[in-house]
Nucleic acid binder design. Structure first.
Length: 411
RNA sequence: GGAGGGGUGCCGGAGUGGCCAAUCGGAGCAGACUGUAAAUCUGCCGCCCUAAGGGCUACGCAGGUUCGAAUCCUGCCCCCUCCA
């Protein structure tokens, strides 16, 4: 994991300026950081989407920086709010989760979370610690502090309301619960994406109402996903997961559109600002963006896996994608050739592709073959039947490879 | 409590008795072009069958009418809007 070197003052400066969208209240936070007091930095975990991707990483890196300055991360597992489904930035109601799903998701999430954030400087808390004791009276007291108009001020609520689309009552509850979390753990700072601004602000208000000092709000920019349009999110499928294999992280990074390169550098790496400026000039000067993108891809894999894996991922990319050579290792599939033969004795490639899992169905496999997407040992096939020897390499599309081994011979 | 509208493939959204495995758009996949970029163009985009061709499922659920239903009828479930 990367560490920014320098004096505490320099680190604070970096923390407050690099990859930051908005801080409320900035002056106050700066003062608190300089005071030397150990701050409690709150971060919410939404256990409905267990996989962490680069979009989350922007905030996770910030947490890491806070930790390096000696502060305490308090990670809240939203086991209650997950049952509601956070409506932030969405226009549709989300399905509720069962307690069991939440627990399982949280486990996966934490394992990934601690690849970036220091576990020893993190306090993990479950909402059920406090909401489990809530009774109706508490709920009434909590809800009575705010008005519908206040909540309708929130962008997505306002939009849905005016468009006549449904807003579940529980969704209005969401910001309240999240706000109460801040009270429960006495947060000094809450950290997250800009789409959370409303919820964060409710937290501030509620803390003040309940006699606490209102938390400072630290918002990081939202990372645009691999589609180049919408924010990175799992449900949109435009994400790069931090737990994906190095080659995939590298490869997916290479396929982002050029316009995103600098954003990614700024939000996801510690490449110094001066160097980024230089990159921008290079791009303006007509340099091939691919080279910068390779640097970016390397940086990302290095952060998540280390130098050695970054180098290997790059080699893999150059070899397989750029030079169109075979990868070093190809997934092997052992299967009975005889079970896949036509009466004439040749192999039915459609059934083989399905059996190996490359295609979801025989029909799909047939389509792939008809479209010229399938190569056997470097030769494109155009018919379903094929003479195949054990150990053949099959390539489907641009980057799917399998090696088929005839299991008939081995028994 | 009253009135009205609606549930279609991954999503949006046409279709109101046969020409519907279902127009179109998006997503996705593949091919061409490339820098595995983007954009663009082309094709595919339910499942199964030895590709032509055929079969089987499918339009909220369950029945029914009909030679024939996503389309008509009955019941049920669910959703939305407006009035109170």
């Amino acid at each position: 994991m990367s560490t920014v070197s320098g004096s505490p003052a320099q680190k604070i400066n970096y923390l407050l300026n690099r990859a930051v969208a908005e801080v409320i209240d900035r002056r106050e936070l700066e003062r608190m950081l300089l005071s030397g007091r150990k701050l409690r930095i709150k971060e919410g975990l939404d256990p409905s989407a267990p996989d962490i991707h680069l979009g989350h990483m922007v905030a996770l890196r910030k947490m890491r920086q806070f930790q390096e300055l000696g502060h305490q991360i308090v990670l809240i597992v939203g086991d209650w709010t997950a049952q509601i489904g956070d409506p932030s930035g969405r226009s549709a109601t989300r399905p509720m989760l069962t307690a069991e799903q939440v627990r399982k998701n949280a486990e996966t999430y934490l394992a990934q979370f601690f690849r970036i954030v220091d576990k020893d400087k993190t306090e993990v808390r479950f909402q059920s610690e406090w909401f489990g004791k809530f009774d109706l009276g508490d709920v009434v007291r909590l809800t009575s502090k705010f008005t519908v108009a206040q909540f309708l001020a929130r962008d997505d609520f306002a939009k849905r309301f005016s468009e006549g689309r449904p807003i579940a009552i529980t969704e209005l509850l969401y910001p309240l619960l999240q706000a109460y979390d801040s009270v429960a753990i006495q947060a000094d700072v809450e950290l997250g994406g800009t789409d959370q601004k409303f919820n964060f602000l409710v937290g501030r208000e509620l803390q003040e109402m309940m006699g606490q000092k209102p938390q400072q709000i630290f918002m990081v920019p939202l990372l645009v996903g691999t589609d180049g349009v919408q924010k990175m999110s799992k449900s949109l499928g435009n994400y790069i997961g931090i737990a994906e294999p190095p080659e995939d992280i590298y490869g997916k990074t290479m396929s982002i559109r050029d316009e995103l390169i600098m954003d990614y550098f700024e939000l996801l790496t510690d490449v110094p600002d001066e160097e980024l400026e230089e990159f921008r000039n290079q791009l303006k000067g007509g340099a091939n963006p691919m080279n910068l993108k390779k640097r970016l891809a390397r940086e990302l894999v290095r952060q998540l896996y280390g130098e050695e894996d970054a180098r290997r991922a790059e080699e893999h990319f150059e070899k397989v994608i750029q030079k169109k050579e075979l990868p070093d290792s190809v997934r092997e599939c052992h299967l009975s050739f005889n079970a896949l033969r036509f009466p004439g004795g040749e192999i039915d490639m459609r059934r083989l592709l399905r059996a190996t899992g490359v295609a979801a169905s025989t029909s799909e496999a047939g389509r792939l073959i008809n479209q010229g997407a399938v190569e056997v040992d470097g030769k494109r096939i155009t018919t379903f039947q094929c003479q195949l020897s054990s150990g053949s390499i099959i390539k489907v599309g641009k980057h799917r490879f399998i090696k088929v081994i005839n299991a008939d011979n081995q028994t």
